[in-house]
Every structure is written in C-alpha cells, then in structure tokens.
Simulated assay, not measured.
Amino acid sequence: MSRTRRRHAALLRELPLPVPFDVHALCDQVAARRGRPIRLLPMSGLTGVCGLWIATDHTDLIFHESETTPPHREHIILHELAHVLCDHYPASLDPAEQAAMLLPGLDPAMVRRVLGRAGYSSAEEREAELLASLIRQRATPGRTVTGRLRNALDDDFA
C-alpha cells in the first residue's frame, strides 16, 4: 500500500487543480499535459459499468453515465481520469475484444485500448477509486478535518 500512496502523492503533486474546481477544466488540463484531447461523453444505460475509458490513437474518450446525480457523475469521471493518470491496461481481453464487447458498433481497428470497470484488476480498480477520491478531497480541502486544520494553520501563520 505504501507504494500506491507514494505514487498517488506524486501524481497529486504534479496535478494542478482548477480553482474553483471543475472536472471538465481538470480534464482539459490533463489533456494539455498529455498532448491529446480528452472528450467527456455522457451516455445513459451503460451496460454493467458507470464509466468507460477508451483510448484511440489520438483521443481519450471518457464515457460516463448521464442518468445519475451530478456528484456521482463527477466521481465517475474522476475515476476514469484516474485510470488515465495511472495508465492502467486491462489484463483479461485485448482491445479489439473489449471494443466488440462494450461498443459493438465501434471499429476495433480505431481503438488502441479500452477500459471499463469490468476490465480492471481489483488492484487497479482500488487504485483508481482511491485516486479519484483523493483528487476530489484535494479540490475541497476545507471540507475535510485535515483541510480545515491546514486552512486554520495557514490563517494563523499568514
């Protein structure tokens, strides 16, 4: 677990968060840093998943359930973005098989890798879920006990 914590700490240090926090702006910043666009695509009725990351040769596509609450939708996007940041790959199926299974109308030759929640190892799933939660926590430090303490200390030493 300490290796995961160190990895997350490094990712969070390098990740500039927009102020005020906006998940779309964060995706734009990550896209600019990676040199490839990230498109957020709402969909209703995703089968068996709440979110899905598809990396084509030139674009990262993050599909997310549209028929849910805004906080849940944001968390889904952050979770999929965490998979992008951690550069996760599915272990069980090759990209063409995953594309055919999850998006049968999509040309598999176009897709370089596909990640849906069902395709991750449990370790990758936990890592993405934790990183998504840490990003959100860091974006609103005043809402956590640690954030309130940090803000209070900053005020006392300012």
Rank of each mutant, 00 (worst) to 15 (best):
Arg112Gln: 10
Glu127Gln: 13
Leu81Ala: 10
Gly45Asn: 02
Val19Gln: 10
His75Phe: 08
Arg34Trp: 12
Tyr120Lys: 09
Cys86Gln: 13
Ser133Ile: 00
Arg148Asp: 00
Val111Met: 10
Leu12Glu: 06
Ala132Phe: 00
Leu12Tyr: 12
Asp22Cys: 02
Tyr89Asn: 08
Leu131Val: 06
Glu97Gln: 15
Leu46Trp: 00
Glu127Ala: 12
Ala123Trp: 05
Leu78Thr: 10
Ser121Cys: 07
Ala99Asp: 04
Gln98Ser: 15
Arg7Phe: 00
Ala25Ile: 06
Pro104Ser: 12
Asp60Thr: 07
Asp87Val: 01
Ala25Cys: 07
Cys86Met: 13
Asp154Glu: 11
Ala9Gly: 11
Cys86Lys: 11
Gly48Ile: 02
Thr146Glu: 15
Leu81Ser: 08
Leu52Cys: 10
Asp57Phe: 09
Leu26Met: 05
Arg117Tyr: 03
Leu11Arg: 10
His24Thr: 14
Cys50Val: 00
Arg136Glu: 13
His72Thr: 12
Pro95Gly: 07
Pro71Asp: 06
Gln98Gly: 15
Glu74Gly: 01
Thr140His: 11
Gln29Leu: 15
Val49Glu: 02
Leu12His: 11
Gly51Lys: 06
Met43Gln: 14
Pro90Lys: 05
Arg6His: 08
Arg3Trp: 03
Ile62Pro: 00
Leu61Gln: 12
His72Val: 13
Ala99His: 07
Ile135Tyr: 01
Gly147Trp: 02
Thr140Glu: 09
Ala128Asn: 05
Glu14Trp: 11
Thr69Gln: 11
Val19Ser: 05
Arg143Lys: 10
Gly45Val: 00
Arg39Glu: 13
Arg73Thr: 07
Gly51Thr: 03
Met101His: 15
Arg148Asn: 00
Ile77Arg: 04
Arg143Met: 04
Gln98Thr: 14
Pro108Gly: 05
His8Tyr: 09
Leu40Phe: 07
Ser122Phe: 10
Pro42Tyr: 05
Ile76Ala: 01
Glu67Lys: 07
Trp53Arg: 14
Arg150Thr: 15
Ser44Phe: 01
Leu149Cys: 10
Asn151Phe: 01
Arg136Leu: 15
Leu93Arg: 15
Pro90Ile: 07
Ala91Asp: 15
Glu80Arg: 04
Leu41Met: 12
Pro90Ala: 15
Leu106Cys: 12
Ser44Thr: 12
